[in-house]
């Protein structure tokens, strides 16, 4: 494609997921899946705590944070009490299920089935001492930041950091 041929449309979404609280992970997955549904390529690059969203044993048990999250409407002192975070997470998941939002693993499966790609960050994996054995089976692979930028080449690519 030449610059003259490019029509200004978004053609590829590269989403960096750096957190694993439920709201951040869903934002990344809805954007990635929504892109594929519009015929836009999409890739999620999980780094730092975002790796939990593709960690085999952690991805099914992600939480929302009730502390330091003013939008939750729970006073910080109460938010830190045992069980509060689990309860809030449970209630949020129930609301999401009502909207037909799939659980994390199923949502990742949907993105994979749609042709989207899911990557893990090499540096973060080294830092947390994870191997690919620890991660979601459908993972496309492990990338360095350089590999990630190479994959972003081309007209109409957007990179977002969550």
């Amino acid at each position: 494609m030449t610059p003259q041929e490019y029509n200004g449309h978004v053609r590829k979404m590269m989403i960096i997921l750096s957190k694993a609280n439920v709201d951040s992970v869903y934002a990344a997955m809805v954007l990635a899946n929504g892109a594929r549904m519009e015929g836009i390529e999409s890739e999620i690059f999980c780094t730092f705590f975002g790796l939990d969203a593709i960690h085999k044993t952690k991805m099914d048990h992600l939480h929302i944070s009730t502390v330091g999250n003013p939008s939750m409407g729970i006073p910080t002192l109460l938010g830190g009490l045992p069980g509060i975070e689990a309860l809030a997470s449970f209630m949020m998941k129930r609301e999401m299920e009502k909207l037909d939002m799939p659980p994390v693993r199923e949502f990742m499966d949907i993105i994979k089935a749609s042709g989207g790609k899911i990557w893990a960050c090499k540096l973060a994996m080294d830092m947390f001492h994870y191997t690919t054995e620890d991660l979601y089976e459908e993972l496309d692979g492990v990338l360095t930041v350089g590999d990630f930028y190479t994959r972003a080449h081309g007209f109409g690519t957007q990179i977002i950091f969550i």
Binding site: R36, M37, E38, G39, I110, A113, S114, G115
Partner: peptide
């Protein structure tokens, strides 16, 4: 889902 994408690519 995979078949649906194959049948109706780009949306």
């Amino acid at each position: 889902i995979k078949e649906l994408y194959e049948l109706f690519p780009n949306g």
